[in-house]
């Protein structure tokens, strides 16, 4: 099946949910009050079967975000051309409203680690990542979004703050950003910094999507450590960051990510509806401020 359209639309500024196959029956039973679904691109790289049948079903009814987790854009090694070709085919087939990847690496020396690994932020790494984003955008023929990572360690070589690194990346490549607010909170806590301070220097103008998720608290006495588990409800602190962000930037496409200990569909949908309420509220406030500015 082909989904060619003249100009790919953008994701709507509404709540969406990361699709889990176990929810398909519940999702298919009714039209869901959601703006979009997001899937991990690599899970749809088989030739056929249930995954594609389900993705076709979703594509026909909802806006779609393809989220890559395996391109290893932050690697010093050349991008995997075969993988890039698979992504290109998937984008051509499903014409997603958005494609996003991570500021991270996951492959080295031919081994794939199945995790999003951190990189030092230097002039040198910035040049490599920018070249990789450029190559990806050229291969896919579209602007992509790059997501800020959750990190547990830093590198002594790093001499550029993450927000500056991402800002510079958008300017060099024209890419957009996926702002993961759980990652912002997790990283800030892990590195003893202010999440709001991070957001204040984040280029909100470039944000095309927001991610919300739950974390796991692995802290021990005197040693705070949060882990980006995607296995719980969105924490209150992260909700506050969300409210602050959409008040500043206006409503944005917002995804609930829940990948571990996945709840039943009604609970996941309820979590998305809470985000939807906040988006609606922000939209009204944003519109009022625009009106005042117009006067």
């Amino acid at each position: 099946m082909n989904y060619i359209s003249a100009s790919p639309a953008l994701l709507p500024a509404r709540a969406g949910v990361g699709f889990k196959p176990e929810h398909f029956g519940a999702i298919a039973a009714d039209q869901q009050p959601l703006g979009f679904f997001e899937v991990h691109a690599e899970n749809y790289m088989g030739a056929g079967g249930v995954p594609h049948a389900q993705l076709r079903f979703l594509r026909e009814r909802y806006a779609l975000s393809l989220h890559g987790v395996g391109l290893s854009i932050g690697s010093p090694e050349p991008l995997d051309r075969d993988h890039l070709a698979r992504l290109r085919r998937l984008c051509a087939l499903y014409q997603p409203e958005s494609f996003s990847e991570h500021l991270a690496w996951s492959s080295h020396g031919g081994v794939y680690f199945n995790d999003l690994l951190p990189l030092p932020y230097t002039e040198e790494t910035l040049a490599v990542v920018a070249a990789h984003v450029d190559e990806t955008q050229t291969a896919l023929g579209r602007r992509i979004l790059i997501e800020n990572p959750a990190t547990y360690v830093r590198f002594s070589q790093s001499d550029i703050p993450e927000t500056e690194f991402l800002t510079e990346l958008t300017q060099r490549t024209g890419c957009g950003l996926l702002l993961d607010l759980n990652n912002v909170f997790v990283s800030a806590r892990n590195h003893g910094e202010s999440a709001l301070g991070y957001l204040a220097s984040f280029p909100l103008i470039a944000v095309g999507e927001i991610h919300l998720a739950g974390f796991f608290d692995a802290s021990e006495a005197g040693a705070p450590l949060l882990i980006d588990s995607h296995g719980a409800q969105v924490a209150d602190e992260v909700i506050s960051l969300f409210e602050w962000t959409i008040e500043q930037a206006g409503p944005l496409p917002t995804l609930i990510e829940w990948d571990n200990d996945v709840p039943d569909w009604p609970l996941l949908l309820a979590e998305a509806m809470k985000a939807q309420d906040r988006l609606r509220h922000a939209e009204r406030g944003y519109a009022r401020r625009l009106d005042r500015r117009a006067l």
Binding site: G25, D259, N260
Partner: peptide, 16 residues
């Protein structure tokens, strides 16, 4: 419901 679903194995969550 389009058959029995297997879990997709690629995701971006961390093990706790």
């Amino acid at each position: 419901c389009y058959g029995v679903s297997l879990k997709g194995h690629n995701d971006c969550a961390a093990g706790a």
